[in-house]
């Protein structure tokens, strides 16, 4: 038989075969229509007019600039949020102190805030009539409609990923191993490098890879602060949007295919990290 559906366990509730079949077929159809089809469309549309046009679309100067800006944004936001995540997880997971829950809530915040509002917060600070405009003007610094704003908005959206993942993991692991190392005379840093880090490395990778995917793909928040200046403040997702709105579909999908490929790579690394983490 081409298609096998079985109960995974031979204990507990075991629905009859016809019911299992029906449930799996409904699930797969749902996923095919809502997940798989859009993904397939990205690649077929991107390559429909041939490899040459695809290559031209992603190697023209504006696209290359967007790619560079996307990489730059991730290169700043991901390390910054990784260091923050390690620091936050250390104090939240290993210590109990007053105000711990407030910090945890603040870390969850970007997940509850619409990306548009996240971008808007920075416009209110640094925009035309922004509250900190005096300071940035005196430093001759432009934040909104410029690269710093894009990086700031991306950092806001992506800072919870590493911190949340590691806080959960490190709380679960407790701190007996660290206490043993310290009582045997290891220094604080030695304990961190040789005891804590090897234990959390897969969780850390998991957090970083999700943070990176979001940093490279963020649209709403970045779109508010960027001003869509071509060749200047355009990231890859914004570039895809502009091309799409100009009815330049094959170029838009070529750029989209790059980001979709990144998403697929992310999923692969993520499932490897997940499996190693469980061990």
């Amino acid at each position: 038989m081409l298609f096998f559906v079985q109960n995974k366990y031979n204990k507990g509730l075991m629905p009859p075969a016809w019911l299992n079949w029906t449930l799996v077929v409904i699930s797969l159809t749902f996923l095919a229509v809502f997940l798989l089809l859009p993904l397939v469309i990205i690649f077929t549309e991107a390559f429909r007019q041939g490899m040459t046009l695809w290559w031209q679309s992603i190697s023209e100067p504006e696209a290359l600039h967007a790619l560079k800006l996307t990489l730059l944004t991730a290169a700043v936001a991901v390390p910054a949020n990784t260091i923050f995540g390690l620091a936050a997880a250390w104090c939240l997971a290993k210590f109990r102190f007053f105000g711990r829950n407030i910090i945890i809530t603040l870390i969850d915040l970007p997940f509850a805030v619409s990306p548009i509002i996240a971008g808007m917060l920075f416009v209110l600070l640094f925009g035309a009539r922004g509250y900190l405009r005096g300071i940035t003007d005196s430093l001759d610094l432009q934040i909104i409609f410029a690269v710093p704003g894009i990086i700031l908005a991306t950092m806001f959206i992506t800072f919870p990923f590493v911190a949340r993942e590691l806080t959960g993991l490190m709380t679960q692991q407790g701190s007996q191993a660290e206490q043993a190392a310290l009582s045997l005379g290891a220094s604080g840093w030695q304990t961190f490098w040789h005891i804590t880090l090897p234990d959390i490395k897969w969780g850390l990778l998991y957090g970083i890879i999700l943070c990176n995917a979001r940093a490279m793909g963020e649209f709403g928040a970045v779109s508010v602060v960027s001003g869509h200046i071509r060749g200047k403040t355009n990231t890859l997702p914004l570039h895809a949007e502009i091309l799409y709105n100009e009815y330049n579909f094959s170029a838009a999908f070529a750029v989209a295919s790059l980001l979709a490929f990144l998403a697929l790579v992310t999923l692969v690394i993520k499932s490897i990290a997940e499996r190693r983490k469980k061990r």
Partner: peptide
């Protein structure tokens, strides 16, 4: 299942 987490929202919108 995690594809929507990894795929940029604008890209899923276009698709």
């Amino acid at each position: 299942i995690d594809l929507p987490f990894a795929l940029p929202t604008a890209i899923s919108g276009i698709a």
